[in-house]
Amino acid sequence: MELFTPDFGLIFWMFVCFGILFLILWKYAWPMIIKGMETRADLIDKGVEYAQNAKEQLDNAHLEAGKITAEARKQQAEILREADKMKNQIVEEARGEAQKAAQKVMDQANEAIRQQQKEAEQALRDQVSEFALQIANKVVKQQLADDKAQAKLVSSLLDEMDQKN
């Protein structure tokens, strides 16, 4: 069978050609090609990963921003409520204070009036007792003279008192 008998010449040239081709490609082609392809594949992988991360971060940022806004709104409402409460409290306090002050002023006035009244009563009492003493004094003096005079004196004194009053 001619087809199944290898020619030595062809085997020889095959070894030579394949050997040369292999050495050349081994030295100058395959390492560069494989390295180039792998580097590029890595770069693409990294790019995709980076993009995914970026997208994730962007989504996160949106979410975060929303959260922060909501938080701020809540805080704002709280602050407003607090301020309102404080205002009411201040007004209430002021009102209480004013009432207290007014009460005090009134109390003082009352006290003064009572004092004056007391003083006036005292003065009246003093005067009445003085008059009484004077009358008594005059009565005693008249008694010593006569009865008519005494009576006259008493009535005149009483007139005097009437006039005074």
């Binding site: 081709l21 050349i24 490609l25 100058y28 082609a29 560069m32 090609i33």
Partner: peptide
């Protein structure tokens, strides 16, 4: 065989040069 070698070698060196 030689032509194939030249062809394959040429193409691969071309690709390597690109890289």
């Amino acid at each position: 065989l030689i032509i194939s070698c030249l062809l394959v070698g040429g193409l691969m060196l071309w690709l390597a040069r690109w890289h």
